[in-house]
Design a protein around this nucleic acid. Sequence first.
DNA 1: TGTACATCAGTGAACGCGCGTTCACTGATGTAC
DNA 2: TGTACATCAGTGAACGCGCGTTCACTGATGTAC
Lengths: 198, 198
Amino acid sequence: MVLRATPEKREEKVRVRQALLRAALRLGAEHGFASLGLREVSRAASIAPTSFYRHFADMGELGSALVMELVRPMVRTLAESALQADASVRAEKLFEGILAAVVADAELARFLVAERVGAFANLRQALNAELEVFATLHAAPKAGPLDLAAREVMLIGATVAVLVEGFARTLDAPAGERAQLRERLVGSLALALGQRAP
Amino acid sequence: MVLRATPEKREEKVRVRQALLRAALRLGAEHGFASLGLREVSRAASIAPTSFYRHFADMGELGSALVMELVRPMVRTLAESALQADASVRAEKLFEGILAAVVADAELARFLVAERVGAFANLRQALNAELEVFATLHAAPKAGPLDLAAREVMLIGATVAVLVEGFARTLDAPAGERAQLRERLVGSLALALGQRAP
DNA sequence: TGTACATCAGTGAACGCGCGTTCACTGATGTAC
DNA sequence: TGTACATCAGTGAACGCGCGTTCACTGATGTAC
């Protein structure tokens, strides 16, 4: 016998799942994902600790879901919007994209920045894989991954580095210093992308 | 009455304190500093949990000691050795310094990379302050901190970003790929330092 | 020299607490016929 | 339509465990005189 839940039931389950993901993101931004507990996250999502298991086997599985379902769309949106811009203004476009992403979801941005080099090896690996896709697209938008010139391969590292630094600094900067930050970051990004510095 | 311990007693206390610091560094590199417990660290340092309090009030105080006593010397040594090199080979010198630091103390390098954007705000702030000193020296070795041209200020961010990326990638790379890594990193560092790419 | 006392790193017992996990159960809502 | 059954998200009680912290104590080793 094949049973399927009604749309309403399915939506309710998705809602609780999203609440768990958002709670983990928020608490992780404060105290670090590695220090989070199943009970803490469940409490923040207003469910009983035992209900957690209806959605994830453990916190590691929740972490993977965060990468796949929240980080990936953010990074890919950023990469694609910058790629559509002319190369001469790509650094500016990238800064605008970072600013927009940070404003739209600061917790998600901090999660990316912190856990990329954080304590959970699986999380670190998954986050860097997302960023590698981003950088590869930018270093050689018309070449396949196996067809990169040495200089382009080299630029990937710098791009990732400055991009993440951009996230981190944008997160920590008060709104009043945003103009100054913009100047600094656009310059750094232009350097990383191999453009001439302004 | 003023009592002072003998040199032998003082050395013994220093030895235990160092054991606590190293244990925290090692365990932190594995699981993240934020997830470490006082009992866990004490166990790894072969002392009773209650003896921990003879050295630090809590884990936060131990974290501060890690920054002041281990991270600071490492970063400053790196900065000074690179500054003594001619500007044309500074990127190479910097890579050699990073490699040497990672080989000498991989746990310390990982601690710096991870906790710079980690969960403990105090730790984050302290680590970034150390790196800021480094970058300021490199961006404008002959100017005071208040006398930086816009371009040099801008380069600070890129320098820190690529430097830390250098640490992170060196840590994760197997020894066999070190030559390739060297090529990529020296190129990125040259970019960040404002030199012409090779 | 001997005696009395101070210092202090290290310790084991004990505490209350929150953790992850197992378990049997509930109740809403589906399908089968 | 009614009846029997299946599914499944959510739950509260209970478990054993490791945590941070307090406490009174030990023992080595200093100083005072």
